[in-house]
């Protein structure tokens, strides 16, 4: 049994979600709220596991309520619901938060509910609160162009983990996932390379291939392997592909560093 809250200023949107949840019998709607303040009051009053949270609402926004919840010791899992696509979506992905885009279909809802259920069953509220704080911090800093990520929150079945960006050596795209390569292991993170790139510090990381981002300080040399085929050699002996489009950038960076160092 998962107890949840629906927060949306639109009656029709609340109805839609309530109706869509009906086939999922173990999801029980405890209350419906039409703004952030009444949701805050409901959270104090009720014990809930999950909150469906609309972002654009009169008065305080859904992000503001999420910021409140990030300060709770054991915040309920938030499923953001929004009609707005764009930058916010990449932030959800990077911080491993669940969201639904209006209008959504039943398959997408089922998938989201399943992911949320996993998270709730994990009972790792501190880790979740940490991820939420990362997201809220990003959302607040979003106006500043140099807002860079400090931690990834990585979720998969049966685990939620926080990984410091400082630990990441390079990142390789792999379908809908990104492989974060750390010193001793690699971790699968459900986010696109493009979303990650938007949240990484460009002075620390560099895109060298359609599917590779690498930490600049690890780059050692570039070699030409054949017609338009380049290889980047890292300090630890690893090699990564470099595309022709990025080869000039890599060369410039290596040359600059040679001059500086």
């Amino acid at each position: 049994m998962i107890r949840c809250l629906i927060v949306d200023d639109e009656a029709a949107a609340r109805t839609n979600l309530r109706q869509a949840l009906r086939p999922h019998a173990h999801w029980q709607v405890q209350a419906e709220c039409h703004d952030a303040d009444s949701a805050r009051a409901a959270l104090d009053r009720l014990d809930v596991d999950a909150v469906f949270l609309d972002i654009q609402m009169p008065g305080r926004s859904g992000i503001a309520l999420a910021a409140d919840m990030a300060r709770m010791d054991a915040p309920p899992v938030i499923i953001f619901v929004t009609a707005h696509s764009g930058h916010a979506l990449s932030a959800f992905d990077v911080h491993a938060l669940d969201y639904l885009l209006k209008p959504f279909d039943d398959a997408r809802l089922a998938q989201t509910l399943e992911r949320a259920t996993d998270l709730i069953r994990l009972k790792r509220p501190q880790a979740y609160a940490f991820a939420l704080r990362g997201f809220v911090g990003d959302a607040v800093r979003a106006s500043s162009p140099h807002a860079a990520l400090s931690h990834f929150t990585v979720r998969s079945v049966g685990m939620i983990e926080s990984i410091a960006v400082a630990e990441v050596r390079w990142i390789v795209a792999s379908g809908n996932y990104a492989e974060l390569h750390l010193a001793d292991r690699k971790v699968l993170h459900r986010a696109t390379l493009r979303a990650l790139e938007q949240h990484l510090d460009s002075t620390e990381f560099m895109r060298v291939h359609r599917s590779v981002i690498v930490r600049k300080s690890l780059m050692r040399a570039l070699s030409v392997e054949g017609d338009g085929v380049y290889l980047l050699h890292l300090r630890d002996g690893a090699t990564l592909p470099v595309s022709e489009r990025h080869a000039a950038d890599v060369r410039t960076h290596l040359a600059q560093r040679a001059v500086v160092g």
Binding site: E10, A12, A13, T15, N16, L17, Q19, A20, R22, Q56, A83, H84, L101, K102, P103, F104
Partner: peptide, 17 residues
């Protein structure tokens, strides 16, 4: 465009109900 998405979302609710 958000108006369109929100309207479609509201219509989804009517269909589901």
């Amino acid at each position: 465009p958000h108006f369109l998405f929100n309207a479609l979302n509201a219509i989804s609710g009517l269909v589901r109900g």
